[in-house]
Design a protein around this nucleic acid. Structure first.
Lengths: 349, 349
DNA sequence: GTGAAAGCGCTAACAG
DNA sequence: CTGTTAGCGCTTTCAC
């Protein structure tokens, strides 16, 4: 059933039917009722392509996922993020287009998306420290929102990010307050902007307490269980091993925990662990599993929020660059001391 | 740059340019070269919507993810699957549309997808035991491929599935051969078809060895770390606890491992564990982390294969229902005995 | 081998 | 308030 058929059935013009269905005010209330009833009856639903062609909008958003050889992004965080965003799109009648791209093809993919005109906006994932996409996206002129920030220090684009720097400074500070001096950092790949910021927070807090950073205590790698295990194992075999470990993801933390067990280290006694936890529903750590002290980020909410930002930018292209900096929650668990308790960081910009 | 502009630049008709670009044979070779060069030069790329409207095909595939309140599917398996499928689509010029849907809205979503005409086919995720979608999809008449199988026992549709029944029978048999008699099953939610099949395999092997199944040793729940922990903890407190545990996912297995540690049980000595491992790149278990014996499924390949099946069905609608039953690899690790070694199940239908 | 013209299903001026 | 008309950018007969 298409518009023409529907209009014939009703004995009306396509225009009137279209107007009735799209909520234009000039339509007679009775007529509108009739049209809507008929549309429902015949299960009419407008053809997306035709509508898009006529209006110039496609009611679709692209999510471009860089799936590097490091499998950095194709991780569970991504799945939850997508779920949140999808929810928002569904509510606003948008469709979500997913593109996965490997390394070199990236720029071409963005250009193609632009040229094909098949989406109204783009969500940018996994911004890197030196990310060529910033200039590219500005050149293309398609509305976009970045989940995270480009590491180039510039402003003037839309983004939503965790306060990674503060979160890791907070965690480091907490460990220092507990008396730790040898604190290891098992970080993500540091060409990713978020990882660089986390390291920055860690270093700043060491500096503030006049603790000299030890390169042997800082590692950077993929956020896998292996990497956590290997990194922790290496740390434990140092002449002066760490008394605390700060790690960048729950998955990595699982490996760290395995290494601890293998070395007979008791959590919260022989070793303290704090991990960043992206609050995956199937794997959430804090509270329910108080084995770790963790920094908590609700990824799913991020997906929702980023999507909402983009829809707003599409609706009002003139709105000033939108930015949101979110604070992580800090949960204290068994792994850093005897009594589980919950604090919450103050939310300051 | 659109087709008209490009054709004006070239001094040709839109028709010729279109034909040249789409590989129609009647175009002069020299003309074609010229056209292609110009297209590249001006970074021309056809408007998806217009092309779709004209051809009736949309060059897009929908993935509908049921995101139940149980967060059953929005898990890491899904992310890897999507990555594999996306790769295939990109290679064939297709776009991937993602819809997440919660429970009741499901049927309406499928109907809308059909009515809006915005995709050429659908990939169906997470088939359940009594899945209303089977009839619905057949009614809609859109090509579709199911990842997994509908539990209704019918044939006549396209699917790709693991041999879940055999995998779990195999694992059970292995444990029985090692001398275990009290084998627990920590299963996924059993309204999911795959979980029911796994239980079936487990039960059939117990039966074959005349071991009476004990309801207290069989649990079913979300595939989360909590569930693994809770289920294992409950099992350990039984009057007659199990000597071996068969579990349905790596995530759950992590919880089981935690419970083992908490109860002072040594893997491969006091307790044997076999888990199904979906071979997530960031969390793969077998080989590299020989703490478990595991059944291995390369989810990413499944994504690729399912996508290829669907594209084939779209291209040749008349091809007989396509089905693929894949066997899991079986890896023996530390958790069931002293020496890690690797076997591979025979592949029989 | 190339072009003119119609049409895919819809919206958006412009009339009335 | 409703209808007529002209596109949106592309493919596809049908002529030449």
């Amino acid at each position: 059933m298409n518009l023409r058929e529907l209009s014939r059935v009703l004995g009306l013009s396509q225009t009137t039917v279209s107007r009735a269905l799209n909520g234009y005010p000039e339509v007679n209330a009775a007529t509108r009722e009739r049209v809507q009833a008929a549309a429902r009856l015949h299960n009419y639903s407008p053809n997306t392509r035709a509508k898009g062609l006529a209006t110039g909008r496609s009611m679709a958003i692209a999510h471009v996922i860089p799936v590097s050889s490091h499998h950095e992004m194709m991780n569970p965080v991504f799945a939850d993020f997508i779920a949140g965003a999808g929810e928002t799109y569904a509510r606003h009648g948008y469709e979500m287009m997913l593109s996965v791209t490997a390394g070199r093809e990236e720029a071409k993919l963005y250009r193609d998306i632009r040229a094909r005109n098949s989406v109204d906006g783009i969500i940018v994932h996994a911004p890197r420290l030196n990310d060529g996409r910033h200039a590219l996206l500005d050149e293309l002129g398609l509305p976009y929102v970045v989940h995270g920030r480009f590491g180039d220090g510039t402003e003037g684009y839309n983004w939503l990010d965790m306060n990674n720097r503060r979160a890791f400074a907070r965690a480091t500070s907490f460990l220092i307050d507990l008396g730790h001096r040898r604190i290891a950092l098992i970080n993500g790949l540091e060409d990713m902007d978020f990882a660089a910021r986390r390291r920055g927070g860690y270093l700043s807090m060491l500096d503030q307490h006049s603790i000299a950073p030890d390169p042997a205590l800082m590692t950077s790698g993929e956020m896998t269980e292996f990497n956590g295990y290997d990194a922790a194992t290496a740390l434990f075999s140092l002449a002066a091993p760490p008394t605390a470990i700060l790690t960048s993801s729950m998955i990595t933390a699982m490996g760290v925990r395995r290494a601890c067990h293998d070395h007979g280290l008791r959590l919260g006694r022989d070793i303290s662990i704090i991990s960043h936890d992206d609050d995956l529903s199937y794997f959430r750590n804090s509270g329910a599993v108080p084995a770790f002290t963790s920094l908590l980020s609700p990824v799913r909410d991020h997906g929702r929020l980023v999507a909402e930002m983009l829809l707003r930018v599409i609706r009002e292209p003139s709105c000033a660059p939108l930015t949101q900096l979110l604070e992580a929650e800090f949960h204290v668990g068994l792994s850093t001391g005897p009594a589980p308790l919950t604090l919450r960081t103050a939310t300051q910009g």
